[in-house]
Amino acid sequence: MTPVTSTERERVRTDLVRARSARSAREGLIKGILVLAALLSIATTTAIVFTLLQQTLSFFGTVSPWDYFTGTKWTPLLAGDQQSFGVLPLLWGTFYLTGIGLLVAIPCGLLAAIYLSEFAKPRVRKAVKPILELLAGMPTIIFGYFALTFVTPTILRGLFGIPVNQFNGLSAGLVLGILVIPTIASVSEDAMRSVPSSLREGAYGLGAGRLQVALRVVFPAALSGIVAALILGASRAVGETVIILIAGGQEPSMTLNPTQSFQSMASFIAATARGDIPQNTLKYETIFVVGFTLFCVTLLLNGISAKVVGRFRQVYE
């Protein structure tokens, strides 16, 4: 081997090792800053869990968990014997109203998704998709206003003549449904569109009609994505606050009668926690214990949805 001249070699050598330490220090510093930013989200979760848990434990120092989880009366703001800390009415309110909402949102959302994915012309889909996304981002306070001033007096009492209270679960539940239609429609449409077109073509080749392809081929193939969309919609409804706060009333109840007033976990928190709530009181702690319950419920829903989506990805990617 014939090396190049020794001075050239030396020059190359110094060139190749030059400035390494200064540069790697700078690059390291930048990476450090980015890591810090990423750790902020971990810190957020930690702070959420820590504050919720701390006050929850303090709450359970006074009220037994058994009474909390099995009690059927939620009257934390009353005094003396009237005071009771059973969370079941809040859980019932949350899931009952979510259920009414899903009763509306599932058929509407899924049918809209089937239409957009399998029947609509590309031009229609291109126009409708952004509108759906815009609707999904509409402030819920406007939905709450709509439930209170239109659905309850004009639709329920006026059009259908249902003797509902001014604050009632039916109105809040129906509007919750309208709220989550865009979410369900948009996400399940994505799932149906990601079904490979070869599957559709195969079915058409066997003489199947459009409807059969949509219902027997595309729908089952996209099922896990659709289930994830439904869970996502349910999770939005479970965490929704102001619609129920404005239109559903502020009385927890465990009835099947939707004309009554209801309270959900989220709406209880917003109704009770205001800037002036006195600290270190049982009333203050109830916010956290209910918040923690809500947090766990949504975490559970999100976990299920992630599992379902994980399966869905394995199939097509």
Binding site: P3, V4, V12, R13
Partner: peptide, 20 residues
């Protein structure tokens, strides 16, 4: 070995290598 220098020696800066 590039110009007599092992490019995988620990003191070598890969960024400088790519420059040359």
């Amino acid at each position: 070995i590039y110009h007599g220098q092992d490019l995988y020696a620990p003191e070598i800066d890969p960024v400088q290598v790519r420059k040359r």
